[in-house]
Amino acid sequence: MPAWVGWLGLLATALYLVNQGDILSTAVSGFPVWDLGGLLGSYLWAIWLLVLGVLLLLRRPAVGVGTER
């Protein structure tokens, strides 16, 4: 897999975790909340899943895998 796929997944995870402020703000008054973080994180994560799936389907099998001698 290309390295950018991993970085895209980490970015999506970080944005999605930013949205956890919604939960913490119910228990900790004044906790910062970025509402757009959940939306962006969810969309980016879905895009990452699609890209990862396409790359897995398009990759070439390793030499010797699935062949009998």
Rank of each mutant, 00 (worst) to 15 (best):
G66D: 10
L56C: 03
L57Q: 06
P61L: 02
L36R: 05
V65S: 06
L39P: 00
L44K: 01
L40V: 10
L44D: 02
L52N: 11
G53R: 01
S42A: 13
L40F: 09
L40D: 00
R69H: 14
V65R: 11
L39R: 12
L40W: 05
Y43S: 00
R69M: 12
L57R: 07
R60L: 02
W45A: 12
R60A: 08
V54M: 12
L44F: 03
R69W: 13
L39F: 11
G37Y: 08
Y43G: 00
G66M: 05
G41M: 02
G38M: 04
L49N: 13
G37W: 03
R60H: 05
L50P: 05
R69S: 15
L58S: 10
A62E: 12
L39K: 14
V65F: 02
W48P: 00
A46G: 06
S42T: 13
E68D: 15
W48T: 04
E68V: 15
W45D: 07
V65K: 08
A62Q: 10
L57W: 07
G41E: 04
V54E: 08
P61H: 03
R60C: 05
L57D: 01
L56W: 08
V63Q: 08
G37F: 10
R60Q: 07
L50Y: 09
G64Q: 12
L40G: 05
L57G: 04
L40R: 03
G64T: 11
T67G: 11
G53W: 09
V54L: 14
L57M: 07
E68N: 14
G38E: 03
I47W: 07
I47N: 00
L56E: 06
G38A: 09
V63R: 14
E68H: 14
L57S: 07
G53T: 09
T67M: 10
L58M: 07
G41H: 02
V63G: 11
L50M: 11
V54Q: 09
L44G: 02
R69E: 15
V65E: 12
G53C: 09
S42H: 02
R59N: 07
A62C: 05
R69V: 15
W45K: 09
A62Y: 01
G64F: 14
L52K: 14
V51Y: 10
A62H: 06
V54R: 13
L50N: 06
L36M: 01
L49D: 01
R59H: 08
S42D: 03
G53A: 09
L36S: 00
R69I: 14
S42K: 07
W48N: 13
W48Y: 14
L56Y: 07
G38T: 00
G38N: 06
V63E: 11
W48R: 10
G66Y: 05
L52H: 08
L44W: 00
Y43K: 02
V54P: 02
S42R: 01
I47T: 11
R69P: 15
L40P: 01
L58V: 10
L40Y: 04
R59G: 05
A62L: 11
I47S: 02
V54I: 15
A62M: 07
Y43M: 03
V63M: 09
L49Q: 12
W45Y: 11
L44I: 09
V54T: 13
